[in-house]
Amino acid sequence: MIIEQDPDDPAAYVLLSNLYASAGQWDKVAEIRKHMKQRNLAKEAGCSWVEAGNLIHKFHVGDTSHKQAFEIYQEIKEMGYVPNTDFVLHDVGEEEKEKYLLQHSEKIAVAFGFIGSVGSSKPVRVFKNLRICGDCHSAFKYFSVARAREIVVRDSNRFHHFRNGSCSCNDHW
């Protein structure tokens, strides 16, 4: 029904594709993605940004273009978070799923916030153009304890204030 209302809105196709993927119906996922390609529709790319030193640092999924990319990914690894691969809606192996999750733009931005403000007790504040995923939400609860820092993420729906292993949304995001 949503697609019938606005057949040129890629968000409806992405939602439908994700529903099929979560049910393991990979043939239907492929069909939806093929239909999107035929209609020349593309999903909005996720990006996150954080301010540090009066500069805005913007990140995309898997971003390695930042001059501190090595340190950023090292920070993510050092925190020891193990991704929940149930959130990956692609038909790939477990190792590839973990790689996808560790490269989300909001994780990169938060890790940069940690290394960009070493010794600071101020919250790390990140903005995201899409909704935060479930794995990142869990990761930030973990990171808030691991680094004893408050993390504030503004996604497309709301503000999330992560502190001492919990979020202000009470996990109703």
Rank of each mutant, 00 (worst) to 15 (best):
S117T: 13
H137D: 15
I72E: 09
R131P: 03
V61C: 00
K141Q: 15
K122Y: 09
E94G: 00
V92S: 01
H137A: 02
H57N: 15
L55D: 13
L102M: 14
V92R: 08
K43V: 02
I72C: 05
N54E: 10
Y73T: 10
S65W: 01
P83N: 09
E44Y: 00
F87K: 02
A111R: 05
S144C: 02
F59M: 11
A69G: 08
D135L: 01
H57L: 07
S144Y: 04
F59L: 04
Y81C: 07
G46R: 06
L101P: 08
G80E: 13
K122C: 05
S48L: 01
S120A: 12
F59V: 10
E98C: 10
A109H: 04
Y142M: 01
K67S: 13
P83Q: 05
V92W: 05
E95R: 07
C133E: 06
K107Q: 08
L41C: 03
S105A: 14
L55N: 14
W49P: 03
A139R: 07
N129Y: 10
A111G: 04
T64Q: 14
H66M: 04
I115E: 07
V88D: 03
E75H: 09
E51P: 02
K122T: 09
L55T: 12
K99V: 05
R147C: 07
A109C: 01
A52F: 06
F127N: 14
E75K: 15
F87I: 02
G113F: 13
S138W: 02
G62F: 11
Q74R: 15
S48M: 02
I72V: 15
V50F: 02
Y100G: 00
R147A: 10
C133H: 06
D135A: 02
K58A: 12
I56Q: 15
N129K: 13
K128R: 08
L101E: 07
G46W: 00
H137P: 06
D135W: 07
S65I: 04
A109R: 04
E94Q: 09
M79T: 11
Q103I: 00
H57A: 05
D135V: 04
G93A: 08
C136Q: 10
S121Q: 14
F143Y: 15
S65C: 03
N54Q: 11
L55C: 12
E95D: 08
E71P: 05
K99A: 01
I56Y: 03
A146F: 05
K58G: 03
R149G: 03
G53K: 09
E71G: 01
I56K: 14
G46F: 00
V124S: 06
Q74K: 15
V118C: 01
F127L: 07
E96M: 01
S144L: 00
A139S: 13
K141S: 03
H137W: 07
E94D: 08
E75A: 12
E51H: 08
V82H: 11
G80T: 12
E94H: 06
